[in-house]
Design a protein around this nucleic acid. Structure first.
Lengths: 207, 207
DNA sequence: TAGATTGTTAATCGATTAACAATC
DNA sequence: TAGATTGTTAATCGATTAACAATC
């Protein structure tokens, strides 16, 4: 399967989460307009996304929830799973650890890193905190391919270069400073300050 | 000024943050390609964004840093400022409080809300935590127009309806459950799990 | 059947980028 | 001047939506 559009990947992740809830509630089938309502989008968009992954529903019942969850898993997940590290065990880092722990079996947070001696060696939400100097070693030992950057802004660039050196494949950067990585590393940046300022701008012009 | 494109608003917020750093370092002028390099985008895009807000640089020196910061402020900020509430003082909520405190003078976090009696009445990063039942009252008293939702997923929908009832103008929802709000409220949703799954998907297909 | 639904192409919309004139 | 830069239109790219045939 060739690479899916960016936005379709995001939506598939969201569909799956809500489909799992439907499944847990005993719902066996779901229509495109039901999925659409949950996510504030149009039924056409749902059908198109599902078309792109090659699944087919039935006219009377819509989509089989279990089958669709299964197929989204085949598309999004790596069969043998992927291991994740969180760099920066401050407020945000700890929030992320609790948030992600035990969420997806194919995506496990297996280590955290920090420079603060008080945090090193402790365990948060079942995840051990290692000193930043051990990053390269632990990444290799634990076969970590993805990292989340949640360090203070002035450390972000340094951490990014350590991650590149450790041959990480994907980075999710939550620090507000953009970082530079080579082309063969997938980088996603999210800046909470920008999101808040954006809400403020559009809220200002509302009603 | 009519409403700017979504993406331009986001970038202006980011430009400003880095321009303030440039200014603090004593840099008086900056070229479009310098701004572009910081943000991994093209100089054309920078110039187009700046064109949209009606600023003009000079051919030899580029843009005046102080003037550009000033103008972005006039576009993004409300002159009298806007007050923000954080609903949910858990890990993520506390991270957000520390993160945002004293960041922008025109955007102040003035209250937090929670249901946990142990947290109510305490002060975190200078922000008092109130009981959720007082939301409507405090929103009115403190003239709060923007709210950040950082409660556990099963409370998100309820909190959203409380916020709508309290006549909030903009909501930034960090819970992974999409919420429904009327048309006259600006809603921005961000889902950390989706971001991580997206990085995992593209990292999987890398190299 | 009539009505509701899916799957898919074509049209539209919005955002980015290419191209280039103007200018210092 | 030659080279570098800005400002802006037109072209392109990517994502969403409209339209509709097929089907149960």
């Amino acid at each position: 399967m060739s690479t899916l559009p960016d936005k379709t990947v995001e939506r598939l992740s969201q569909y799956r989460r809500n489909l799992l809830i439907c499944d847990a509630n005993g719902k066996e089938h779901i229509f495109s307009h039901e999925i659409a309502n949950i996510h504030h989008i149009t039924p056409v968009q749902v059908r198109r996304d599902i078309m792109l992954i090659g699944y087919t529903g039935t006219l009377r019942k819509g989509y089989n929830v279990k089958e669709l969850v299964e197929l989204i898993g085949e598309i999004l997940d790596k069969p043998e799973g992927q291991n994740v590290a969180i760099v920066g065990a401050g407020n945000l880092g700890r929030a992320l650890m609790k948030y992600f722990s035990n969420r997806r079996e194919k995506l496990s947070i297996v280590a955290a890193f920090d420079v603060n001696p008080d945090k090193i060696g402790t365990t948060l939400a079942g995840i051990e905190v290692y000193p930043l100097e051990k990053l390269k070693q632990i990444v290799k030992e634990k076969n970590i391919s993805i990292a989340i950057i949640s360090v203070p802004v002035n450390e972000a660039v340094n951490v990014a270069s350590l991650l590149v050196d450790a041959k990480i494949k994907g980075i999710l950067n939550y620090s507000p400073r953009p970082v530079n990585v080579p082309e063969n590393i997938y980088l996603e940046e999210y800046d909470m300050v920008t999101s808040l300022e954006k809400v403020a701008y559009f809220a200002k012009n509302m009603k």
